[in-house]
């Protein structure tokens, strides 16, 4: 494992923990898209089915279990525990527009036409766009709490670091996975506009608010 890969995983974990703590401590999930979080739970579930078929390392297994557990905890907090604070009126992105095309694409473009491989591919495609309901919600309300901005930034940094990891692996191991790379590029590009706002506003101590 190279440093980019490790920092990417760490950044991903930090993002998830930031959001869990924010919701838990404030007893509120206002401003958080339950749809994006539900999509992430689907992403982790469909991707990590190999927990039952392959053992890679304790690190690999441990992280997978933590990601899955955290994603379900998040969904439970938003749709059950703190349901009263969930801002469903602003969480109106149509998820079928993300799930259906990525599912079809996973059937058409994959490494191997087997159930586990198709589900893995679906999870890669779905992850690349799963944040859209959250970004849509931010653009609809025109603002995001600072802590939500930190979450989005850490989540964006994660896939960006993976891009560096893939360059490294191609260079030094001759390894590449085109499906992951293309989807990872799309995912990173979706965060670019947000990165700009984060650096120009949030880091200067301002709340992220979009011009009307």
């Amino acid at each position: 494992m190279n440093i980019f890969r490790f920092l990417g995983d760490l950044s991903h974990l930090i993002a998830i923990v930031i959001l869990l703590l924010k919701i838990w401590k404030s007893r509120s999930c206002a401003g958080i898209s339950g749809k994006s979080q539900a999509l992430f739970a689907v992403v982790f579930t469909t991707r990590y089915l190999d927990l039952f078929t392959n053992f890679i390392s304790f690190y690999n297994t441990g992280m997978k279990v933590v990601y899955i557990a955290c994603s379900y905890a998040m969904v439970w907090m938003i749709y059950s525990k703190f349901k009263a604070t969930y801002d469903g009126n602003h969480d109106t992105f149509r998820v079928e527009f993300l799930v259906a095309p990525t599912a079809i694409l996973a059937f058409l473009v994959n490494h191997d036409f087997t159930p586990l491989e198709i589900l893995w591919t679906f999870s890669i495609y779905l992850e690349s766009v799963a944040i859209l309901p959250q970004l849509f919600m931010v653009s609809k309300t025109g603002e995001a709490e600072t802590i939500t901005s930190h979450y989005l930034f850490a989540l964006g940094v994660y896939r960006t670091l993976y891009l560096f990891n893939w360059i490294w692996r191609y260079q030094f191991e001759g390894f590449f996975d085109l499906i992951a790379i293309v989807a990872g590029l799309v995912q990173t590009i979706l965060y670019c506009d947000f990165f700009y706002l984060y650096i120009t506003k949030v880091l200067k101590g301002k709340k992220l608010s979009l011009p009307a």
Binding site: R5, D9, H12, R47, D50, N54, I56, S57, N60, M63, K64, Y67, H111, D112, E117, W120, Y162, N165, G174, F175, F176, D177, L178, A180
Partner: peptide
């Protein structure tokens, strides 16, 4: 090469 079986990444 284009690996597909063992997924060591997360």
């Amino acid at each position: 090469g284009d690996e597909s079986t063992l997924k060591d990444e997360l």
